[in-house]
Design a binder for these strands. Structure first.
Lengths: 95, 95
DNA sequence: CAAAAACATCGAAATATTTAGATATTTAAA
DNA sequence: TTTAAATATCTAAATATTTCGATGTTTTTG
């Protein structure tokens, strides 16, 4: 039922999560009721816009976030399927 | 019931898992029936001994592996509690 | 259409990680 | 007790990542 990730995907996801800013971004988006915009996320950190863009790209490239372009804004949601599959992979290590 | 990890621990664990060799090490140790020795792990890879030692250290420092010194050998097992707590953290992102 | 807003991309500097070789330490075996 | 085996540590080179500023693109607004 849950998608299965290969080891390369797991590596990429782990790498994406291995940064304090990107972890916080995941938390912010996870906790928000609705979609979160890029500038909402940026506002939380003291980082250049290009840096934030880079971090978000890594989360999107790892399929942890789904980005939806809405005019000149980007909105994000957690990719629940991939997060669940990743958690599943980790849990499979302890079987 | 499951231990709760803080964001710094999650970052460290993610970083530790964000490398192909270290992921493979986790898989090898996970799949093995009994304890795995350092030299067993090294034999699977074409890496210098010092490099392997470095990778194993990172997994141990992240509390993903428990090392047990047995004479001049090191034996490893998966730290199931920490792995489970990590998977739990990931799952908490999709609530 | 010109200006502004939101985001992406590029280039370069700063920093961190990976890797190997040399050497050290600890324990077992001869 | 010398030697060998297993692992750790140190140093340095190679490589990768992070960060910013400058600039580019797209879309909205005046």
């Amino acid at each position: 039922m849950i998608a299965c990730l290969n080891i390369k995907q797991v590596e990429k996801i782990s790498k994406a999560l291995g940064d304090p800013y990107r972890l916080k971004i995941m938390n912010i988006i996870s906790k928000s009721e609705s979609c979160v915009q890029c500038c909402d996320v940026s506002a939380e950190f003291n980082l250049a816009q290009s840096t934030m863009s880079h971090h978000l790209k890594q989360l999107i490239d790892a399929d942890l976030l789904i980005a939806d372009k809405d005019g000149r804004n980007l909105k994000f949601v957690i990719n629940k399927e991939v997060c669940a599959a990743y958690a599943d992979y980790i849990n499979s290590l302890l079987l």
